[in-house]
Design a protein around this nucleic acid. Sequence first.
DNA 1: AGAGGGTATGACTGCGTTGACATAAGAAAG
DNA 2: CTTTCTTATGTCAACGCAGTCATACCCTCT
Lengths: 336, 336
Amino acid sequence: MKRTTIVDVGRLAGVSAKTVSRVLNGEPHVSADVQQRVRAAADTLDYHPNVFAQALVRRKSNMIGLVYENPSPSYVVELQRGVLERLTNERYRLVVIPIRSVQENASEVVGLLRSAALDGVVLAPPASDHPLILKQLHEARIFCARIAPTRMIDAAPSNLVDDVAAAREIAAYVIGLGHRDIAIIRGDATHPSSEARMLGYTQAFHQAGLELKFDRIEPGLFTFDSGLAAARHILARPDRPTAILSQNDDMAVGAMMAAREFGLSIPGDLSVVGFDDSEVSRITWPRLTTVRQPVFEMAVAATEMVIAQLEDRAPIARILHPHTLMIRESAATPRA
Amino acid sequence: MKRTTIVDVGRLAGVSAKTVSRVLNGEPHVSADVQQRVRAAADTLDYHPNVFAQALVRRKSNMIGLVYENPSPSYVVELQRGVLERLTNERYRLVVIPIRSVQENASEVVGLLRSAALDGVVLAPPASDHPLILKQLHEARIFCARIAPTRMIDAAPSNLVDDVAAAREIAAYVIGLGHRDIAIIRGDATHPSSEARMLGYTQAFHQAGLELKFDRIEPGLFTFDSGLAAARHILARPDRPTAILSQNDDMAVGAMMAAREFGLSIPGDLSVVGFDDSEVSRITWPRLTTVRQPVFEMAVAATEMVIAQLEDRAPIARILHPHTLMIRESAATPRA
DNA sequence: AGAGGGTATGACTGCGTTGACATAAGAAAG
DNA sequence: CTTTCTTATGTCAACGCAGTCATACCCTCT
C-alpha cells in the first residue's frame, strides 16, 4: 500500500538508504558489487524516486514552463513543439502556462509562476517584453529565456528576429511586383512585433517613394477571424487595393477567404502575403507567400538557454535568428 | 536569501507554524483576529507555500498530464485548449506528455507518467485504448479519463463519440449527393478510430448498394502531407473517383491541394469531405464539409472527470458526445 | 611501523509542510 | 460547582530524499 522508498531498496540490497541514493544518482565511491545489488533491488521493487522529496531537498523541480498569451494557434503550436523537441530525453517536464493578458495582470502572472515552482520558463511574446515579469522572475530566481523580445534585449537571454527587416523585405517584394496601392492588416497592437513590422512596411514604402496612407491600415488581432473581418472592410471599398500585407499568416488566410467572398481571384485580382510561415501558409490554395520566422528553432534555442542556465553551463545571451522570404503563389504582378 | 517559510510568517504574526497552515488552508477553529494577523504577515513577507513540501506530505501534486501521440496538430491543439479551459482558475497545472509510439513502449510510458508524479492524466487516442497503460495507471493510482476509446469502455471514465455512425452519416451524405465512385483516405491504422470510421463508411456503402473496392482505399497518417500524397495517388489514375472521403480534416485539406495540382475544381470536378471539424476545415476555400467531433468539449469533460476523481466527487463513468454533420461547400452533386 | 591519503559506507539531520495528538480556556450542561 | 463539550492553539513527528560528517578500511610512502 505504501510507496516503496529508498529505504526499502536499501533493506533489500542490504545497504543503507544513503548508499542507495548514491548509486541512483551516480555518485562515486560505491563498489561495483553494491551498485549491482542496489540496481537489482530497485528493479525488483519497481522503485521510482519521489520527485517531491527530491525537489524539496534539492530545491529544484525539473519543470520548465512555457508562458504564452494566446496569439495565433499555429504560432503556439510551433513554439510548444520546439520546446518539447529540446526536452525529449531530458529529465525536465513541460508545464504549459497560458495567460490572458500580460498587460493587465503581470504581477499575478509571476505569482502563478512562482507558485508553480518552475525552474525556468520560456517566455513567448508579448510576455517576453514585459519589464515587470522579467524583474520579478529574476527576484524569484526563476531562469528564463525569451522569444522575440523587442526591448531590453540584454535583460535576459533572448531569441531575436529582425521583424523590421523581415517586414521591409516582404513589403519591398510586393512593391517590386508592381503594386502601388497596398493595404495592411495589423496585428494586435499590444504585441510589440506588430509595431516593428509596421515600421518595416513603412520603410519599404518610403524607399519606393510610396506613401502609406492611414486609411489603408486595418487593425486585426492575429487571428483568422480578425483577418477575415479586416479584409472584408478593405475590399468593400470601391477603390480597393491590389495587394494586402498581413502581419501574420492566420490573418492572411482570413484575407484570402474574404477575397473569395468578393469573387476575387488570388493572385490575379488581389495579392496577399502573410508573415511567420506557419503551418497554414502551406496548406492554402494558392500557397501563401510569407516571410519565415523560425519559431520552432527559436523555441528549441530558448529551451536550450534555460537548460544551460539550470545546468550552469556557459549562458547564451542572445541569438539572432534569420528570416527568409518564402515566395509562393499568393502574390503576383497586378493586372494592368 | 532563504525562502520565506511558514515559520517566518508565524513568527511575524506571533503564532505557531501550524496555525499559519490552518489559516492558509482555510481550516476551521482559528479566531478572526489571528486570521487577519496571519494573512497580513504572509502578505508583507510575500510568502508562497512550497508546493513540494505540500506535495510530499499530502501525497498530491496538483498536476494533471495530457498524454498524446502526435496525430494531427489541430486535434492536439483543440484537446489542449479544452483541458486548459477546464483548468482555468483551478489549482491544477497541466503537464504535457507527448509520446512517440504507444504501441512500442507502453510500459516505458507509464514509467514516465509515474515518475512525473501526476495526480491524473487525460489520455488521447490511441493511448486511451491501450490495456497495459490503463492497467498500470490503475496500479500506480493515477486517475485517468479517456478521450474516444473504442475498447474496454468501462475500464475507466470515457468520453465517447460514435465514430461508426458519424462516418456512416457523412458517407451517406456524399452518396446521397449522387456520387457512385468514391475513394477513401484512411488514417493511421494503429488508431482504433480509423477502423471504426472505415466500418461506418462501409455500412453506408452497403446500405446504398454500392461496393467498396479495396483499390479505392488509400492509406494515410492523419497528416496533411499524407493526405496530399494519398490524393495524388488517387487522382493520378485514369478512372478517378468523383469524391474523396478523408478520415480527418488535415488529410482532406491535403486532398484539396492535390486536386488543385491536377487542375480539378472543388466541388465541381471533385467532392472532398473530412472528419473532425477542426480549425482548418473553416479556413480553406471552399470550406470543408466534415463531421464535427466535439474534441474541445471532450477534453473539457475528460478533465472534469479527472478532477472529480481527485476531489472525491461522484465519478462520471462515461459521456457519449454528439457528432454533427457540418455541411459546407467542398462537396456537391457530381457533374453529369 | 606509523603517518597520510584515498575509498567505501553509514548515522544523523534538515528541507517546508501538514496530520495526529495534546493542551488550555471558555461555554454549556448537569 | 463540577463535568463535559467545543473552540483555539501548540508540539511533535513524518513525508522521502540528499548533504554533512563520522567511521572503518585499505593503500602507499617514509
